[in-house]
Simulated assay, not measured.
Amino acid sequence: MTRVGILGGTGKTGRAVARALAARGAVPVPLGRAQWPDLSGALRGCAAAYLIAPNLHPDEPAHVSAILAAARAAGVGRVVHHSVAAPYAPDLPHHLGKARAEDLVRRSGLAWTILQPGAYLQNLPLDGSTIVVPYRLDAPFGFAHLDDLAEVAATVLLDEAHAGATYELASWRGDVSGVAAAVGAATEVLDPEEWARTDGAGLDERQRSWLLAMFAYYEAHGLPVGTVPMTTLLGRTPTAPARVSDR
């Protein structure tokens, strides 16, 4: 059976990808921080690896570079990098880190595929509770459903035909108001400075400033992403927003 290393395998994305791989008969190998002292050893025997950096990593290129070196040393043949939609957005520092990491992946000497998901639907409450965001409700988005993304990740990890491809991925196009209508939720717009004093107060200054930059970008531009690549890779209609209790 095909073994696949999942770097960042203990987070919500890593766990979803592991489930999707197991459903196809592959053997997921979730790897977290505990494996870093001997990452190449932990990756040995894996045919492919899925690279997920921690959210708002202060130096994602260095993080990804270390994973790529370990993958080469372990004899891993293919890597799939979990990036983000619109990685080259100069106003978004954490996106730029992913853009630089993408360049490292492309020049790694390994067979590679890059996935660029839009904002997760699961980042919003889907249980009917009030959806609170620090940007306008009608900002356009291409939202990615986590289960759809995981299914696509399993597809590209297990099929070498996707080597050299970059896929921007969204399950549903719309805005926060549309998500709220679909799940029967009320909405509230929170002033970004109020967010910084409340929900963002526990973050360090860098993380808080990066997220404030993201909110300002969303206010001005949203994060539109098309659904055709996701639809094609899934071979079905992607998942639309729905109440968790209705699924």
Rank of each mutant, 00 (worst) to 15 (best):
T187S: 04
T187D: 03
T187H: 03
T187R: 01
E188G: 10
E188R: 12
V189W: 02
V189P: 02
V189E: 02
V189C: 08
V189N: 00
L190R: 07
L190D: 00
D191V: 02
D191H: 04
D191R: 02
P192H: 00
P192T: 00
P192V: 00
P192M: 05
E193R: 05
E193C: 09
E193A: 15
E193G: 09
E193L: 10
E193I: 03
E193S: 13
E193W: 01
E194V: 14
E194F: 06
E194Y: 03
E194R: 15
W195C: 03
W195T: 01
W195M: 03
A196W: 08
A196F: 08
A196E: 11
R197S: 05
R197P: 09
T198L: 07
T198E: 03
T198R: 01
D199V: 13
D199I: 10
D199A: 15
D199G: 15
D199E: 11
G200L: 00
G200K: 12
G200S: 13
A201G: 12
A201V: 10
A201W: 06
A201L: 13
A201Q: 07
A201M: 04
G202E: 10
G202Q: 04
G202D: 13
G202L: 07
G202I: 06
L203E: 05
L203D: 05
L203Q: 05
D204T: 05
D204W: 05
D204S: 12
D204A: 10
D204Y: 02
D204R: 03
E205I: 07
E205N: 13
E205K: 08
R206T: 07
R206V: 12
R206C: 09
R206K: 03
R206Y: 03
R206D: 14
R206S: 08
Q207R: 15
Q207N: 14
Q207T: 12
Q207L: 14
Q207K: 15
Q207E: 14
R208G: 06
R208K: 14
S209A: 15
S209F: 15
S209G: 15
W210D: 14
W210Q: 14
W210Y: 07
W210N: 15
L211D: 02
L211P: 04
L211I: 01
L212C: 13
L212K: 12
L212G: 09
A213R: 06
A213H: 05
A213N: 11
M214W: 11
M214S: 10
M214L: 13
M214E: 11
M214D: 09
F215D: 01
F215H: 05
A216L: 12
A216K: 03
A216Q: 05
Y217R: 13
Y217M: 07
Y217W: 15
Y217H: 15
Y217C: 10
Y217E: 14
Y218L: 11
Y218A: 11
Y218W: 15
Y218V: 09
Y218T: 08
Y218I: 07
E219F: 11
E219T: 02
E219M: 08
E219N: 06
E219A: 12
E219P: 11
A220G: 15
A220I: 08
A220N: 04
A220F: 11
A220S: 12
A220E: 12
